[in-house]
Amino acid sequence: MKILEANNIEKSYPVGHIIQKKFQALKGVSFTVDKGEIFGLLGHNGAGKTTFFKILTGLAFPDNGTIKLFGQDISQRNIKEKIGFLPEHPYFYPYLNPKEILSFYGGLFSIDKKIIEERTDYLINLLGLNKWKNEPIKKFSKGMIQRVGMAQALINDPDLLILDEPMSGLDPIGRKEFKEIIIKQKQKGKTIIFSSHILSDVEMICDKIAMLIKGEIVKEGNIQNLLSEGNSEYEIELEKEKSINIIKNLGFKYEILNKNIIIKIDNYNEAKKVLLELINTDVKIISFTPVKSNLEELLVKEINKSEKS
């Protein structure tokens, strides 16, 4: 079942104060997200991720294109009953404490007061806010505010969780806890769409990703498939002594370290052949490693490609 269907979304907005120019943030963005998926929206600063989330949550309207959530147009208010949203750098009323904040946001849903109270207690425990539940938020650190932000996004037990840079401002323990919460939501059958600059986190928990560069989706799909697309380099590490002359004769790229040499071969069969040849010599082989590309490299590669074009 499709939870999100974005079709050719275009959005521009004015920038500048006196002389205003139009900046096109989204240029025909289309992708879909299935039920129960963790979907990562990646891109550089200003790529259009936050603009897309703002359209999803009704903070901005698209110039062109349509978005359907749960099969309905996003303009339908009842859809928002099923959505939880954590904006980038969330802000709350400074005089309220976490309990009051959750009660306030709960009051904006068609949920029974008793259920809101139960959810409030549950989320305060889940996000480690128990000690500070009666303290006004103006005393909170950035990481603590982020925890309150996550709690308000979960107050309605949403079917779709939209998180804009959820790990921002969190310490390593906080990041680990947030990842666990996201995975737990998936296990409950919920769908999660999030953006993050911490690509190792995205790699770890996402099922699918879309790369948004300069307002366009340049890559989309299953994260493992995308990573294996660029996985073509192999490294053989040897002891420098005795091996330098042999390597020069082989004609591959190599890198000299302190005591070792690394040969870089971009083809598996070639790498296998070289390895077999080396076994028959008295050169000491330290390691043979397939170099796995990661999301960061993939994203940088796509950004560079886009810069050149």
């Binding site: 009704g58 903070l59 859809i79 904006p87 969330p90 802000y91 946001y105 308000q152």
Partner: peptide, 12 residues
């Protein structure tokens, strides 16, 4: 102060 972000995204 951007408090509106979390309000508008709710069913109001």
């Amino acid at each position: 102060k951007k408090t509106i972000f979390t309000i508008i995204s709710k069913p109001i």
